[in-house]
Design a protein around this nucleic acid. Structure first.
Length: 352
DNA sequence: AAGGCGGGGGC
DNA sequence: GCCCCAGCCTT
């Protein structure tokens, strides 16, 4: 039996019952695919339900505010996905009369939809014969066929795409694409796959040559950078407000909310912090500082953030001349999209 | 071609 | 600590 037929035969009795597999609505499939980019099914599932509930169709999604979408995305990470979805939704309303496209060539023009997602939506919603190429497919193909070319180089991607296209079952692309991804997720797992029960074990190159643990080949990632964030919690007791700022572009957490901060490339003591030019410009010489929490390490895939939260009081009257922050009512804080580091702090210290 | 972008989970 | 996860965008 062919590789493709084996994969499909494995799928039917082993597949998970996932909600986006019960529809061919390209909008719903789009929601699920964007949510699942670089995200495990278990992590994305609750978000999928919330988004379908809140925005049952493309029109409601496009009509929402970006901040509201970001707030619903809060905690899921890679927030450019949420911002790009909003742009894509508006493009569907403006350029496609509100009808979500189902062809690969139309889909790939939308913000946040690349080669994988366009192939996924086109095949799942309209059975277009385009192969999906995600982490699962790279792994399955490299192991089964013994491809030692690195998967994260342009040369490797081209090679794997050609193989993926060759293996695609053109008569049933939707089922085949689902099958190979599910096979990668459940059977041909990254670590400790149970090859003893694999239906492809006798013809798998990696299994037969004992290379399961060395395939696929991937060029190593970069080292993480350390960043030191000193967050200032500034309460206005009279109004029940707290100081908040919105993060800008070209850095993490774009358009999300946090406290006013001073960032350093190396750790500082509290007295050193008070003597920085930045502190003086923000709050004036007379301001007082009290530590709320010792440095908390927040790990992202490419940087380590050491965040210290400090209470500031007795700030000078003419502080915030540059408009570094705004005051928001504590009761309204929940409606703003905040990174995990911030909303976890608010929760832990009962400020929300 | 390479770097940037979250957060969680497995080992 | 390192790797991976239904990747995409920018430079």
């Amino acid at each position: 039996m062919s590789f493709s037929q084996e994969i499909i035969n494995w799928y039917h009795p082993n597949k998970r019952d996932l909600p986006w597999r019960h529809t061919t609505d390209p909008y719903i499939i789009w929601l699920s695919e964007i949510i699942l980019q670089q995200t495990r099914v278990e992590q994305g599932l609750p978000y999928f339900y919330r988004f379908v509930e809140q925005y049952p169709n493309i029109a409601t999604f496009a009509a929402a505010e970006e901040g509201e979408i970001l707030r619903l995305w809060q905690g899921l990470g890679y927030y450019s996905r949420a911002r790009n979805m909003h742009k894509a939704a508006k493009m569907v309303m403006d350029n496609h009369d509100g009808i979500f496209p189902t062809t690969y060539d139309s889909l790939i023009k939308l913000n946040g939809i690349g080669g994988y997602t366009a192939a996924a939506i086109a095949s799942f919603s309209a059975n277009e014969a385009k192969p999906v190429l995600d982490g699962n497919v790279f792994r399955v193909l490299s192991r089964y066929f013994g491809i030692e070319e690195a998967i994260n180089t342009p040369k490797g991607k081209k090679l794997f795409y050609e193989l993926a296209l060759e293996m695609l079952d053109k008569e049933q692309p939707a089922i085949y694409n689902q099958s190979i991804m599910e096979f990668g997720a459940l059977q041909c797992k990254p670590q400790n796959p149970d090859c003893q029960i694999c239906p492809l074990r006798t013809s798998c190159y990696a299994k037969q040559t004992n290379k399961v643990n060395s395939l696929p080949v991937k060029i190593k990632g970069r080292i993480s950078k350390d960043r030191y964030f000193y967050y200032f919690v500034i309460m206005d007791e009279k109004s029940g407000s707290i100081a908040i700022r919105k993060r800008g572009p070209k850095d993490i957490w774009e358009n999300m909310y946090e406290f006013p901060l001073i960032e350093q490339a190396a750790p500082l003591s509290i007295s050193e912090l008070k003597n920085t030019k930045e502190f003086n410009e923000l709050f004036g010489r007379g301001a007082e500082l009290h530590i709320i929490s010792t440095p908390k390490k927040h790990i992202l895939s490419h940087q380590n953030i050491y965040a210290t939260f400090l209470e500031v009081s007795k700030i000078s009257k003419d502080s915030n001349k540059k408009g570094e922050w705004d005051y928001v009512l504590l009761k309204d804080l929940d409606t703003l999209a905040k990174p995990k580091l911030i909303f976890a702090f608010l929760r832990d210290y009962n400020l929300q």
